[in-house]
Design a protein around this nucleic acid. Sequence first.
DNA 1: CGACCTTTTGATAGTAGTCAAATGAAGTGG
DNA 2: CCACTTCATTTGACTACTATCAAAAGGTCG
Lengths: 265, 265
Amino acid sequence: MLNTATAVTTRHQAVISQAALQAMGRDERAPAPRRERFDAVPIAAMLETLNEALQPQRRIVRAGDRICQAGTDFGALYVLNSGVAKVVNLAADGREQVVGLKFRGDWLGFDGIATGCYGCDAIALDTGEVWVIRYDALLAACATRPALLALLHGAMSREIAGDRDSMMSVCTLPADARVAEFLRHWAEALEQRGMRTDQITLRMTRAEIGNFLGMTLESVSRALSRLAREGLIAFAEKGRRDVQIPDVGGLAGFVQRYLAPAMVQ
Amino acid sequence: MLNTATAVTTRHQAVISQAALQAMGRDERAPAPRRERFDAVPIAAMLETLNEALQPQRRIVRAGDRICQAGTDFGALYVLNSGVAKVVNLAADGREQVVGLKFRGDWLGFDGIATGCYGCDAIALDTGEVWVIRYDALLAACATRPALLALLHGAMSREIAGDRDSMMSVCTLPADARVAEFLRHWAEALEQRGMRTDQITLRMTRAEIGNFLGMTLESVSRALSRLAREGLIAFAEKGRRDVQIPDVGGLAGFVQRYLAPAMVQ
DNA sequence: CGACCTTTTGATAGTAGTCAAATGAAGTGG
DNA sequence: CCACTTCATTTGACTACTATCAAAAGGTCG
């Protein structure tokens, strides 16, 4: 119960093979797998830098508008100055999945750099402003402004780390906790941007949320009902798209409790 | 049955909300969500460029060696010149998950750029050579060699796209198909690097594979047995770590069949 | 050989998916 | 303004996939 490598067996299996354990035997226990999740550069500062360096073209989008389209030629990256967007991955066989949510300051279109065409659709979930950053112009500007390059790399790096965290949520959490974590994550994103977190408007249907989390719309609905029954969330009087979160910490606690119900020592 | 947006309902739910559908109504059907998955720059050429531009330090690793460690200060990226490695994401609460597999030419450590410390462990799965690319040196070299920067961005972009595909596999495929897709992906990675694909040596235990795919080791074992029973794979005489794949296309077909059993039109 | 893993396979349980029906919202046209 | 249509959501009943528990067999290494 003291070795984290083998203690976690609540859901699925422990990861570390014996071979790996003994191979890394020398340096006993990892010093501090602590991960800092804050941004080195605040979002507002990043946008300011981008704005003055590139004076990007602005585009107003409304709910449902496609910001970029899978399969079309890559030429620009997009930065959300306001609003919310979903990223939808499309497979050749017709499967599609929401693989990400984007908020103010987030970038879109990175997946097009390598292949020369966008790999995902990005769809606005409400009204917002998108900045169009032509990739060649960005690179040119980066040549004279190292800070810009740092910004770009930071954004890509954060995207990679974020995707992995999504992966972990989907793979290690039961359905109810996944929904709780989804809400917590959304609230956290708002908080980082200085917005209210006590009430959030989900701009996705249950089906979209389920698709994002790898579960059915019914399971999402049930999970939300259960969270509401436990008092962790509440619905606005009319319509169930607005979720009130009296205490974000409560959601985090729920995830932890659900994660390791018997891990209370 | 002709509208891909609503046709896919075999597993979980269709993604596209009605609102989104009508909002994007004007441009009828998407032109071609085709995604090109090949590399613009062959892997060998990329390594050659890296080598001559930076003459990176080389490090020989053996199975179980840690290439980089979550939580430690970020200073360098790593490129696999040979061997295989797994990327393990660590959560603050002790959960850990294999979130990626890396082969020759793949980069490691991108997640450290934004936060200043690595977010994942990277563990060698067999003997191999790792190139250490100091990040500051890389940036300096990029300033005079645009090709290097393109390489870097291409690698990060590919990582983002790849993570999303993993996410989609985990979320949209049933257990058996997930394992088949895992094998297919491994074979594809070998093929892109000019290696044999008819026989691959899984360098992970069933527990590790299961952790990666979001299922238990028993389910992985059962899935492999089923694939073997169907003749899609075969085991070497001794030990069940070597998997023979007579026809990679067969695995792809299995995934498709399992994906849409009733989608035969 | 014996200790220790890993893997396989079976039996059982539980979570989440599927099917179905009812309610709730929202928009349309008379 | 109100029927009427349409879609989103909720909830129940049932099913099925996959996790869990357990035992045995196969490998590996001292």
